[in-house]
C-alpha cells in the first residue's frame, strides 16, 4: 500500500517586494508516491521547495493546486485525523518546552494524543532505551546540547507510534558524531516497526546512511527519483582506482585514466568508464606493471548529486 501519494502538487506564495505583489512558485507540480516502510530522502539545494513540500504533506500548508493523500487522508483538510498517525520533526522548530524537562512535555503530548497513562510511561521507557536517551529526560530541555535535544525531539515524535515520520532538516547544526548517531536512530526506528521515513535534507550523507530511495527536487520540480543504489549505478561515469605498486612505475600513462594524486608507491586514479571499461584498465595495469594491491571504488555520492543539480533540466 502507498503511504504517500502526491499528484501535481503546486504551491505559490504571494510576496511583497518593493511594494509590488507577485507570486513565487515554491513547488511547481510534483508527483510521486511512497510505499509503506520506505526510507525516502527528499533532497535539494536551499530554497528548492523541500520544506514547502513536507509542510503540505503534514497539513501545515494548503497547496495552491493538486492533490495528495498521506495514509489515505488529505493532509490539509483532514489534518487532525492525519496527525494522530504521523510524527513530525522539524530541525529548526522545537516541539519541546524549553523551561521544562522532556518528560513533562512527553506527558502532555501523551494526553494530546490520548494515550493511556500507563502505556505512555511504558512507551517513553522503551524509546529511552532504543534511542539511548533515558538519562536526558529529566533535565530541563534548555540545558541539553543540540544533539541531546534532538534525541528527545525524536522521542517526542514517536510517543504515539506513528506510521510515517516526517523529518525536515533534522541534522542541521549537529556535529559529525551526533549526526551519525541520529541517523542510526532513525534507521533503528524504521526497522523496529516498519515505519515510513520521509526525510528532507541538503546534507548528502543523510541519504547515504538513512535512505534507500532518493527524490531530488530543484526549483520546485522533481528532477530525479530512484533507488540510492541504482542512482549510483546509472550515474556512475567514473570509478576510482587505488593502486599500490611494488616498485615505482617509470611513467604511468593509460588511455582514459587520470592520476588524481600519488605519494610514493600509492596512486589514486580516475577511470572514465564511458570511454573504457574498468576491466581493460585492470588488465593493462596487471600486465604492464608490478602491482602489490588494487581496489575499485565508487566516487562519493556528493559528486553524483552535484551532477544531478547541474544537469540541464528536463
Amino acid at each position: 500500500m502507498a503511504a504517500i501519494e502526491v499528484t501535481n502538487l503546486v504551491k505559490r506564495f504571494a510576496t511583497k517586494g518593493r511594494g509590488r505583489r507577485s507570486l513565487v512558485e515554491a513547488v511547481s507540480g510534483i508527483t510521486f508516491s511512497v510505499e509503506d516502510g520506505e526510507r525516502l530522502a527528499y533532497i535539494g539545494p536551499n530554497g528548492a521547495g523541500k520544506s514547502t513540500s513536507i509542510k503540505m504533506l503534514t497539513g501545515i500548508l494548503h497547496p495552491t493546486e493538486g492533490h495528495a493523500t498521506v495514509l489515505g487522508y488529505i493532509p490539509w483538510s483532514e489534518r487532525r485525523k492525519l496527525v494522530r498517525h504521523i510524527g513530525t520533526l522539524f530541525g529548526q522548530r522545537s516541539q519541546l518546552w524549553a523551561q521544562l524537562t522532556a518528560r513533562q512535555t512527553f506527558r502532555l503530548l501523551a494526553r494530546i494524543y490520548r494515550l493511556d497513562d500507563r502505556d505512555a510511561a511504558r512507551r517513553i521507557e522503551e524509546l529511552g532505551e532504543l534511542l539511548e536517551a533515558t538519562t536526558l529526560f529529566d533535565v530541563p530541555v534548555k540545558s541539553l546540547s543540540l544533539g541531546q535535544r534532538m534525541r528527545c525531539e525524536l522521542t517526542a515524535s514517536q510517543l504515539h507510534s506513528p506510521r510515517v515520520l516526517f523529518l525536515d532538516e533534522p541534522t542541521i547544526g549537529l556535529g559529525l558524531v551526533a549526526k551519525q548517531r541520529f541517523r542510526e536512530m532513525i534507521v533503528r526506528l524504521n526497522e523496529e516497526r516498519n515505519m515510513t521515513v520521509f526525510l528532507t535534507s541538503h546534507d548528502v550523507s543523510d541519504i547515504e546512511y538513512v535512505a534507500r530511495r532518493v527524490i531530488v527536487i530543484n526549483h520546485g520540480r522533481i528532477i530525479y527519483d530512484d533507488d540510492v543504489s541504482s542512482m549510483r549505478r546509472s550515474l556512475l561515469r567514473t570509478k576510482l582506482l587505488e593502486v599500490r605498486f611494488e616498485e615505482a612505475p617509470r611513467a604511468l600513462s593509460l588511455d582514459s585514466v587520470e592520476v588524481l594524486k600519488h605519494s610514493g608507491l600509492g596512486y589514486k586514479l580516475v577511470v572514465h568508464t564511458s570511454q573504457r571499461s574498468i576491466r581493460s584498465v585492470l588488465d593493462e595495469l596487471l600486465d604492464d606493471y608490478s602491482v602489490a594491491d588494487i581496489s575499485v571504488l565508487d566516487p562519493p555520492l556528493e559528486e553524483i548529486i552535484t551532477e544531478i543539480y547541474e544537469a540541464p533540466q528536463r
Partner: peptide, 12 residues
Amino acid sequence: GELDAALALPIH
C-alpha cells in the same frame, strides 16, 4: 511561522 508546532498536533 510559529504555528507549525501547534499544527502538527491533533487538537485545535
